[in-house]
């Protein structure tokens, strides 16, 4: 039920679409079997709409994309990382509400 504003990131497109992106990118590491990840979906959809044009927002499935998952040592989901100029500038682990995501974005964008 990902909204149209939410991108899908993968091992294949991560370099081009996240690390080389012109705007900051918010990446939600998730999996189908993770209840808290699903609970967080509305918050992700909602910030994707609110920050459209300023921040790219997308999801990366950890089951299907082991290489990015391992590179950033993600060992717990949901994990949300904010990338700017190819670097992690902020991250939050565990299900959080929209307010926490907005605070994180407003600090860096």
């Amino acid at each position: 039920m990902a909204s149209e504003n939410v991108q899908t990131y993968s091992d294949g497109n991560f370099d081009a679409d996240v690390l080389q992106a012109a705007t900051p990118v918010l990446v939600d590491f998730w999996a189908e079997w993770c209840g808290p990840c699903r609970a967080m979906e509305p918050a992700i959809d909602s910030v994707a709409a609110d920050y459209k044009g300023k921040v790219a927002v997308g999801k990366l499935n950890v089951d299907d994309n082991p290489s990015v998952t391992m590179k950033y040592m993600v060992r717990g989901i949901p994990t949300v990382m904010l990338f700017k100029g190819g670097q992690i500038v902020d991250q939050v682990v565990g299900a959080v509400d929209k307010g926490v995501l907005k605070q994180m974005l407003d600090r860096h964008v």
């Binding site: 808290p36 040592m73 993600v74 060992r75 717990g76 994990t79 991250q91 682990v93 565990g94």
Partner: peptide, 8 residues
């Protein structure tokens, strides 16, 4: 947390 520490 999220890099080896978990509650779930």
């Amino acid at each position: 947390m999220g890099h080896g520490v978990s509650t779930c």
